[in-house]
Each structure stands twice: as structure tokens, then as C-alpha cells.
Design a protein around this nucleic acid. Structure first.
Lengths: 194, 194
DNA sequence: CGGCAATCTTGACAGCGACAAGATTTGCGG
DNA sequence: CCGCAAATCTTGTCGCTGTCAAGATTGCCG
């Protein structure tokens, strides 16, 4: 089904997408080359342009795929704010190529209709999960968005710093566990070990 | 002093650096071209290579400059954890080109000696400021690094999301003020207006 | 079965980073 | 003041890249 049989490839778009994600995970988005992608897929150098139009179009498609995957991961994580945050960080680490492309507007086409929709979808899942958070019953004073923003910031920052290799070495190998202990500082300021 | 007089430019390195920062602020790091930089400085296309060796070398120099500027900004911000965090976010927004390059290891040369030193310098300022934080006297249970990590994560995440344009529109124009209300969630979980 | 749209190829062009070799200038020892 | 070495910048070139245009091949639908 995904074999390169004859003139038409048959499944070139999906093949290029997975090859692109793998290449980004290996060498970062900047080093990604459409021609190299075509080479890996055993296809002529101009073939990718037909499916994505553009280098930015390819990144846009990756971002869309990323937001959908994130939405699914968050939906599966449950309603606890803590678990939601851990799932966010684990998504970022397990799909670092998607994550990096998703939050770099200068790579993809940020106003793309399909991308807007996917981003809105994952945002809705996030807000739905945060709506009946059990860890913090009393609403914050700076509006309902205040603590959502704080939670989003702390998990996004932790994930970004982890991926950038900027965090100290003593955190271990499990980003989810490390994130859990960090996120806890949001509700229980003076304790992180439970 | 910074004039292009004759065969030797006289101040080409600094000129290229500022031109690079401006170009990155306009179109992002990915679109930066050494040849375009040379053109802006009125210099031949291979001149930048002599000062930075490489495209990665240029980004490394920018990152070094960024960490030094950040260290200065943090040192000037005072000892309060809150003010420290606000200064961090304001630095990221005011020097977004530096900030983006600093935390993208695939752009610069992360093991560069001068870069290591600059990063360590700014890290020391951050830790010094956090050492006698007044807003939270009691130590966290998961070691002294726990709350430092939480604070760093929340400000870094907020700054990153702000720069990515991912935050909702209702936050106003002042990132420092918005950051202040978000950071407050770290110590006072149920209030953010005070 | 015929034609049409989708898909892929071939070819070309300008721009890019990197390297090598040469030109020019500065600075420093004598 | 001279001359030479090092620093700085230029010119030329190479392979690679993204993008566009035009043609070849295939699947599909009437």
C-alpha cells in the first residue's frame, strides 16, 4: 500500500510527512530539505511541491497533524489538571518535531484555515479538561483565564526548556515525572513531594 | 567610527551583529542569510565568514550577547522573585531575536566555550536573585531546585507563548504586567489581583 | 472508450553556504 | 622609515536548495 509502484507513488503525502518528522527529529526543522525528503521517498525533487505547495505548506501540514495528536493525547489524559499537564509535556517530548513546528509561526503558515481549526480543536480539549479541575476548587481572582494561563505557561515552559537541553542534568530520564513535581508548585506552593 | 571607509570596514563584526539581530526580528532566524547581511553592511558576500566562520558561529555570537544582556537585566531587576520573573519576560519580548537564538541549540554551537561561560554567568545571576527570595520563605520539599525550576518554567513558557502569538488576545499590550499576574499563581494559588 | 484531472518527472533559474586564492590594509619589529 | 607578517576583505567557484514551468504518465468518471 505504501510501496513505490510505478509512476504514481500511491501514498506519497503520508510517506513525505513521516519522513519529514523523522528528519526534523534527527536534525531540527532548519536542516529540513524538500529535495532530501524526495530522495528518501525515492521520488523526483519536485514531487513534494505538488502535495504541500511550499516548504511552509509542509510545515503547516506537520503542525496540523501535531495539534490533532495533542488533542487526542489531552483527551485521553483525564480531567485532573496535574495529569493534563504531564500529558502536555510528554507529548512535547515524544513528538518533539511536531511540537517545535507547532509553536514556530515563522515556519508554518499561521493563518491557514485547516491549521486554525486544528489549533482550536486542541484548545477546546484543553479548556474542557480545565473546566472541572478538582485540584483547585476556588476560582482565581484574575478571571478564569488566569490559572489556565499559569498552568499552560508552566508546562509549556518546562517542555521547551527540556527540549532545548537547558535544564540541569539531575532531573533524571523521565520528563513526565519531573514535570509532575514541577507542576505541583502551582497549587501547593510549599511542597512538591506530596 | 562605524563608517565603511576603504578596504577595511573598521567595525564590521558589530555592524553584522546588529544587522543580524534586526533581520531576525523582522523575519525570524530561519530566513537569515549571511549574504543578505553582507549586502546590508555594504561588504562582499564572504566577509561575514571571516568574523564568525560559519552561520552557526554568527548565531553563537548572538546567543552570547543575549545571555550577557539577560544577566544584566536580571541583575538590575532586584531580589524579589516576582520582579525577577517579570524582567525575564520583558527581556524575551524586547530582545526576541536574542531570546529565540539562545534557546535553539540546533541554530548555534551549544558547546562553544564562550557561550558556555555566558550562559553560566546569567544562570549565576538568576540563582543569586532566587537565593534570598522574600515572597516564599519556607523551602520547598523537593529540594531547593524544585521551585527555581517551577519559576523558570512559568516565565519561560509565558514568554515563549507570547512570542509565538499563541496566547489569547485579551491580555493587553504589556507583557510585563500580564506576566506579573500569571507568576503570582506560583505563591498565592487562589488570588492573582493583589 | 475517450478525455480530463491528478500525480509525478524533467529542466531550468536564482540564491544560498562554504571553501580557496588573491588583494589590500594595518601594525609591529628592526 | 622600511619591510614583513597577520588581519581583513574581495573575487571566483562549487554543490545544494526552493521554486517555477512544461511535459509525461496514470487513474477515474462519464
Amino acid at each position: 500500500m505504501s510501496d513505490t509502484r510505478g509512476y504514481h507513488h500511491g501514498d506519497l503525502r503520508r510517506t513525505l510527512l513521516t519522513a519529514a518528522v523523522q528528519a526534523i527529529e534527527e536534525s531540527g526543522p532548519a536542516a529540513l530539505s524538500l529535495r532530501d525528503l524526495a530522495r528518501r521517498a525515492g521520488v523526483s525533487h519536485a514531487a513534494p511541491a505538488h502535495h504541500f505547495g511550499d516548504r511552509a505548506g509542509l510545515f503547516t501540514a506537520i503542525a496540523v497533524q501535531g495539534f490533532d495528536t495533542l488533542a487526542a493525547a489531552l483527551a485521553e489524559a483525564g480531567d485532573e489538571l496535574l495529569d493534563l499537564g504531564v500529558a502536555y509535556v510528554e507529548f512535547a517530548v515524544r513528538h518533539r518535531a511536531h511540537f517545535e513546528v507547532m509553536f514556530h509561526p515563522d515556519l508554518h503558515r499561521a493563518d491557514d484555515a485547516e491549521l486554525r481549526a486544528a489549533r482550536e480543536r486542541s484548545g477546546a480539549v484543553l479548556r474542557a479538561g480545565l473546566a472541572h479541575r478538582s485540584a483547585r476548587p476556588e476560582p482565581a481572582a484574575d478571571g478564569p483565564q488566569g490559572d489556565v494561563l499559569a498552568a499552560w505557561s508552566i508546562v509549556h515552559g518546562f517542555a521547551t526548556l527540556w527540549l532545548a537541553g537547558a535544564l540541569p542534568a539531575g532531573l533524571g530520564e523521565d520528563p513526565g515525572a519531573a514535570a509532575r513535581s514541577v507542576i505541583r508548585h502551582l497549587f501547593t506552593p510549599a511542597a512538591g513531594t506530596d
